[in-house]
Amino acid sequence: MPINTVIKLDAIEKTYHTGEVDVHAVRGISLEIRAGEFVAIMGSSGSGKSTLMNMIGALDRPTGGHYWLDGIDVSTLDRDTLADVRNEKIGFVFQGFNLLSRTSALENVEMPMLYNRHRIPSHEQRARAVNALELVGLGTRADHHPNQLSGGQQQRVAIARALVNKPALLLADEPTGNLDSQTSIEIMGVFQKLNDQGITIVMVTHELDVARFTKRMVILRDGKILTDEAVQNRSVAEKELQALRAEQQAVKLAS
């Protein structure tokens, strides 16, 4: 396995035993993602993309096949070791942001470091959290609570939280699902900027518009890979924003 391979899926299967009927959510997916890639996993509901995402995110174990994350065979690990893998190797960004309410942005970002197996001194925790918030352009909002932040800002806090443990993989599940179109482009801009800095990103989405910001699109159907190809005519967030502003000015929505 090449050193720069972040994810290697080998004939991954997931079967749910519910009652008498076995549900085959994922039926043999093999996939390799290298460091620095920006991949969109697409598919309609029921295509198995959420199940795949849970397994890539080490939240769930496959019932068949093998999964190597950053050189570790995750498919054989126990609960506690899976938790450690999530803590050290994966940063999650969710559709619903999933921030802790009544907890400042800074403390939300510091939270994953509480669960590090190696103790991080509190001043270092603070420094790293501030750093991550600055990276997503929220350095001045560290003391704000989630209910004092807009949706886009909340998602930026979530991204900062995902980055704070320097993961090998940033895993985003419909990160723009709860955002309006302009904010969605802004968030995709954040992802593109992070990817330019070398961070590997895997994003699950069902919106083609959003997927166009990535570099590679994997389309699933019925638990299998339908297509896997590089994105043509890739959208660039800055340009899209400019275009959007021009449109808005035309209808006098923005000054």
Binding site: L59, A83, N87, N98, L100, M111, P112, N116
Partner: peptide, 16 residues
């Protein structure tokens, strides 16, 4: 429950 889910997702062990 949701808070517990978030904490587990970012790496909290059952013991934590």
């Amino acid at each position: 429950t949701r808070e517990i889910g978030i904490r587990m997702a970012v790496g909290a062990r059952a013991a934590d």
